[in-house]
Simulated assay, not measured.
Amino acid sequence: MRKTERYKVKEANSLWHIYKTVPFWKVVRNFIVIQLARYTPFLPMKNWLYRTFLRMKVGEHTAFALMVMLDIMFPEKISVGRNTVIGYNTTILAHEYLIKEYRLGEVNIGSEVMIGANTTILPGITIGDGAIVSAGTLVHKDVPPGSFVGGNPMQVIYDKEEMDRRTKEDVFFMENS
């Protein structure tokens, strides 16, 4: 189960109440910063923009590829560890507006994580250190450290033990070929 806080709304759907949940000028600022970062090829500049203007926690040497789309409403709820790669056109959400409620949740992405292109990460998710997320995955539940996951719906393809065993086999094969 994802770790989100739920807020009920009355009458109109929760997106109709957007500026009761987040200030208009915050959304405008965040939109401009995120759009600048999406198109810049300079990784240190992206991380600086995210840390400075969006109040995100971004680890050293983390790389956000082109076109990564961060949550415009609550980017401060996203944290990414060190030396992690976020693939092209990935979307990271910290909110979801539904008909009768909206939900907010922290997104914690560990260190040494690889997230493939076109992945969507939903609010309230933790991706453990050393995990690999296949391209095109809908991350709707936590990802265990060191595991390899993929698909829609997301499934664990290899757990940490299987990944470690396969890595040792690959090293052995490369050394003996």
Rank of each mutant, 00 (worst) to 15 (best):
A12D: 08
N13R: 00
N13Y: 00
S14L: 00
S14N: 01
L15C: 01
L15I: 02
W16E: 01
W16H: 00
I18N: 02
I18R: 08
Y19D: 04
K20T: 04
K20A: 05
T21D: 03
P23R: 15
F24S: 10
F24C: 11
F24E: 15
F24G: 07
W25P: 10
W25C: 11
V27N: 09
V28I: 14
V28A: 10
V28E: 14
R29V: 08
R29A: 11
R29K: 15
R29I: 04
N30C: 09
N30R: 13
F31Y: 09
I32A: 02
V33G: 01
V33Q: 00
I34P: 05
Q35L: 06
Q35M: 02
L36N: 07
A37T: 09
A37Y: 06
A37H: 01
R38N: 03
R38H: 09
R38M: 06
R38A: 03
Y39S: 02
Y39N: 09
T40C: 00
T40H: 03
P41M: 09
P41I: 12
P41Q: 13
L43S: 14
L43T: 05
L43G: 14
M45Q: 12
M45S: 08
M45Y: 15
M45I: 13
K46Y: 04
N47S: 14
N47I: 09
N47Y: 12
W48V: 06
W48A: 14
L49N: 02
L49E: 04
Y50P: 04
Y50G: 05
T52D: 07
T52Q: 15
T52C: 12
T52A: 15
T52V: 11
F53V: 01
L54N: 10
R55W: 05
R55Q: 13
M56Q: 10
M56L: 14
M56K: 10
G59W: 13
G59E: 06
E60D: 15
H61R: 15
H61G: 12
T62Y: 09
T62M: 11
T62V: 13
A63Q: 08
A63E: 10
F64G: 01
F64H: 00
F64D: 01
F64S: 07
F64W: 00
F64L: 02
A65Q: 09
A65T: 11
A65I: 06
L66Y: 07
L66H: 05
L66W: 05
V68E: 04
V68N: 02
M69C: 05
M69Y: 02
M69D: 00
L70I: 00
L70N: 01
L70F: 03
L70C: 03
D71H: 10
D71T: 11
D71A: 11
I72S: 04
I72A: 06
I72E: 04
I72K: 05
M73Q: 13
M73F: 12
F74A: 09
P75T: 09
P75D: 10
E76C: 04
E76M: 06
K77Y: 11
I78F: 05
I78W: 06
